[in-house]
Nucleic acid binder design. Structure first.
Lengths: 200, 200
DNA sequence: TTCGTTATCGTACATAATGTACGTTATATT
DNA sequence: AATATAACGTACATTATGTACGATAACGAA
């Protein structure tokens, strides 16, 4: 493994940092390649020596962040410990992280390419959750359905929460989403389900 | 209310139909305005007499479809009847509808502008669900949180299901999502939650 | 320190889609 | 039949993109 040329390392970091700052400042969609290279004090042509387009650059910039977050949350633990000492710590960590970078994530998820990133994030989350589910035998539903449900619901709620300028504190939303996911709408709303309906 | 000029009516319908066909044939992103007008046998300049861009055209093309679908599902009923004769009919109808137009919706939701449309759809669904929730007193959580959770989870699952080429029959996924939403992951996975954890 | 390598610079060019303009023609409304 | 205007046909300016290439500077290896 040959070490990367210092110039390459520096250039990529400069581009990534410039991108994130500019997304916060002026959003993702209107951002031109030249805006990024200008902010990074580089020539536009240099960009294409490292990345195919804005999207590839953003994905590279986000990947580190996500890996770090995943370690913090140990997200799979949410599923893993469902039957034991349950907790909503993973949710809380994630929502707090989203809150700290709310402008960045809001602009990304609400951008044109937002769907691309949302998909990546959901796949990433679902993968982590799937690991935890593998340790639970006799699931009533296919594991990938459950994993993608949990991941999709969480991501959808983060998206909604950020889009609407975080109308409730992170603690409350995290708790709510956790509860809804684990126990369902019926239990959360204090609605009794008669046994008759349990199979319909 | 003056009736619309026949030419206008015809032109708009032609553009909408051409767009939907082309999205199925070649996806949304690579689609140029000129491709649409060519298919509709119209001049490119004519497009701009009616729509600002592709997005506006697609939104207008989808709105009718959604209104029709909403009437079929009476989606709000899902929340409305949670405590009574529960059913997953609304979910089933929606998933079947998605299945019938799977290429169209997959290409839309997976496109660059997919996030924009996903947001619109989620807001639309959440609005319907909110209507049903208003009739339920003493919610443990804010109604908009619950509504957006239900809508977000369903839309996320439709998106996932379409992205992965519908790996399970519509009936099974609809049933699964319905069950997960109503009773939660714990109940679905046959995991017992001890009373200690019910408040954490 | 020297030397070969190569990332970046500086600049230029081709391409492609967009948005708009405007006189002309055809069609709808009354 | 007369008037209004939608759509045509064509043209033009703009803007971002992607690429090319010789020159320069920074880097890594010896």
């Amino acid at each position: 493994m040959v070490r990367l040329d210092r110039r390459v390392e520096r250039t990529r970091k400069l581009l990534q940092e410039a991108l994130l700052v500019l997304i916060i400042e002026q959003g993702y969609d209107t951002l031109r390649i030249e805006d990024i290279t200008e902010r990074a004090n580089l020539r536009r042509a240099t960009f294409y020596m490292h990345y195919k387009d804005k999207e590839e650059l953003l994905l590279s910039a986000l990947s580190e962040t996500f890996n770090r977050l995943a370690q913090e949350t140990e997200h799979f633990a949410a599923a893993d410990r469902l039957g034991g000492k349950t907790h909503y710590g993973a949710y809380l960590t994630t929502f707090k992280h989203a809150e700290q970078n709310h402008t960045l994530y809001r602009n990304i998820l609400n951008s044109q390419s937002g769907a691309v990133f949302a998909r990546r994030i959901r796949e990433y989350l679902a993968g982590l959750i799937l690991q935890g589910l593998h340790q639970i035998p006799d699931l009533a539903l296919p594991a990938d359905v459950v994993a993608n449900y949990i991941a999709g619901a969480e991501l959808a709620m983060i998206t909604w929460w950020l889009e609407n300028d975080m109308p409730y504190p992170a603690e409350q939303v995290a708790q709510g989403v956790y509860q809804l996911t684990l126990r369902g709408v019926a239990d959360t709303l204090n609605i009794t389900i008669s046994p008759d309906n349990r199979s319909d």
